[in-house]
Nucleic acid binder design. Structure first.
Lengths: 167, 167
DNA sequence: TCGCTATAGTTTCATTTTGAAACTAGTTTA
DNA sequence: TAAACTAGTTTCAAAATGAAACTATAGCGA
């Protein structure tokens, strides 16, 4: 059954509102759903600061990113609410708290590293001063993150397609 | 030499402005620089729509994402200006244009796929209806994107560290 | 060729979000 | 105990967003 509404009617308006909301959070596209949880770019930068730069305390994160304290506050709350971060007692023994990534948060590592490598490739001269991500064990640079088939062959955009599945 | 400014002085204010700008775009952190180019989440969703969903025309992208036309317009301009997209004559022979990813844009594929896989893992029930990314050749699901050492060992957050290099 | 529709935007304006600064409340340190 | 530090919240102005109306060009059918 197809719904038909007179434009400008309240019913039509509310229908559009509803559809717009569905559009992202109820989308079948996983990237669109991820959008709702990460919310915005600050969230990804915050997570990166915690996971890669090792900042854990409110003030540390705020100074590292140079962002407004109220925005940081609201983003941290959202990230905790969504299960990406968790607020734990400070590791220095004081009565303060710090923020740590949950397993769900740590699982964003490949996305963060892929983004980082893309930034390295396009926004730095080859010999320009930059921070580098290295393995803790050997201190060596890591391999570029790639998309691979089950068999291990590297896949490019033209090798991929999206299908709609009705499970 | 350490700079000391009286708070509220204009010099102090301008200094902060300058430092804030430097903080992201001139940062040594590649994720922060990538931030300036992608700009915001819409940009990433637009790129994903073009790369993975195969939408190329303005109206197609707008309908797929359900976003405001003026915002889409400004994002597309920015993406073109930053070399991530390119505006080319429409492939259907009409006098319209369409948007295609440049090599720089296509190189964001690993980041997009990693994000997508994260969304799949945490926002869908195992048997819930969803779109799926498959290899065009065999139609099979692709391997999870991971971070690996030079030797090919999978690395977790605790295996990594960021160092500041003075090249 | 005329008129209608489609496409790809731009403009306008109300609403929402952001961010800087001031403020607050609890914690630590001297 | 007082001063300084930490982690916020509140307030308010500025900027970004988004919906709707508007514009200009392209395509299409008669």
């Amino acid at each position: 059954m197809q719904l038909v509404f007179k434009r400008n009617s309240l019913v039509f308006y509310n229908y559009l509102i509803k559809m717009k909301k569905k559009c992202l959070s109820d989308s079948h596209c996983p990237i669109a759903r991820a959008y709702d949880a990460i919310g915005d770019w600050w969230s990804l930068l915050i997570l990166s600061t915690i996971l890669l730069a090792g900042a854990r305390r409110f003030g540390e994160i705020q100074q590292t990113l140079g962002m407004a304290r109220n925005i940081l506050s609201s983003r941290l709350s959202k990230l905790v609410k969504n299960g990406i971060l968790i607020k734990v007692p400070a590791s220095d023994g004081t009565n303060y708290f710090e923020y740590a990534a949950t397993e769900m948060g740590e699982d964003l590592l490949p996305a963060l590293v892929a983004l980082r490598q893309w930034g390295e490739r396009y926004f730095f001269d080859s010999n320009q001063c930059r921070s580098a991500l290295v393995s803790r064990e050997k201190g060596e640079l890591i391999r570029p993150v790639t998309v691979c088939s089950k068999a291990g062959r590297e896949l490019r955009v033209s090798d991929l397609k999206v299908i709609e599945r009705d499970s």
